[in-house]
Design a protein around this nucleic acid. Structure first.
Ligand code: FES
Ligand code: FES
Lengths: 156, 156
DNA sequence: CCGTAAAAAGACAAAATACTCCTTAATCTA
DNA sequence: TAGATTAAGGAGTATTTTGTCTTTTTACGG
């Protein structure tokens, strides 16, 4: 995709989220090949492969090799919250680190921005914890929302 | 500083914020040399110079060359909000871009996460808009809070 | 006017992130 | 068992961010 300045989530994380939503939307127990996902979502196949490996390593997805192989979610979409995916790919830094980059937020003496940042951080955490893949799929299907740049994506 | 994973703000932005808070804390109208700031805050002098240039370009600071030169804030600390500094250095991307990296958030057809993200984004914006440099200085002085890694910093 | 101190500007180096390509291992089908 | 298909693994490239270094410009102080 490229040309993205500074965002909340890394590109890898965004790809992981979109792939997870996609898998939750097809929702039968069959494996879907990463090639298929990358084509549907217009993401580099090789890069997506690496990203999804992190999700299989973290037991959010499971994979099978060979013909008819691919990846699938280990649990139904309403049992997977966004925070799990973000944590698996980007780590928890955004929810634990000091806004001024000082080491040991929460344990060491705070910085002047700590109180405000802690509150804001909680809002982010809450959003990522309360939103499930199922929520996004339901909303996406109901409003025929966009999951790719061009919006040519068709919900299952 | 190094080794920072994925954060809300870039390193450059964090340095700019810390330098701004420092300048607001000394608060007389004299210029402070960037060398002095970099030593007080333990930030690379050359890198900080480049960061502060963005702030002078955006009329948040003004500078003077030569002996007795340096930088200072253009306005008192209670008239400068954090958002100005963040916008000058990192841009407004974090407050305008789609959480899933799709182009045209707000104008184009939304993505499934848009509603939640828009709310969270507003919280971030509100925090950055309501907090002034003066707020941080007051809090920092009152609690002798930390502005450097080691916490050896002394408020004026 | 001269020397010095400081920011500005620009070239360069290192590290992290984003992305590509090739090989290997596993699994299915015939 | 052989061939095809697909994920996994690893090496390599490109771009951005971070950081360093050197030179130039501007202002002060004598
Ligand atoms: S110490 Fe800075 S945000 Fe917690
Ligand atoms: S379109 Fe994705 S957050 Fe607005």
């Amino acid at each position: 995709m490229l040309f993205v300045d500074f965002m909340l989530l890394s590109s890898a994380c965004v790809y992981g989220l979109r792939a997870s939503v996609y898998l939750a939307s097809v929702s039968d127990d069959s494996y879907v090949s990463i090639t298929k996902i990358s084509e549907e979502l217009d993401i580099s196949r090789h890069f997506l492969t690496k990203v999804l490996q992190k999700l299989t390593d973290n037991d959010i997805m499971e994979s099978m090799k060979g013909p008819k192989g691919g990846v699938r979610l280990t649990r139904p979409g309403d049992e997977i919250v966004l925070l799990e995916i973000v944590a698996a790919i980007d780590g928890m830094d955004i929810l634990t680190e000091c806004a001024l980059g000082l080491p040991g937020c929460g344990t060491a003496k705070p910085c002047p921005i700590h109180d405000q940042w802690a509150d804001t951080r909680d809002e982010i955490r809450q959003m990522l914890t309360e939103t499930t893949l199922r929520n996004l799929v339901d909303r996406g299907k109901a409003g025929n929302l966009r999951l790719t740049e061009e919006g040519e994506f068709k919900w299952a």
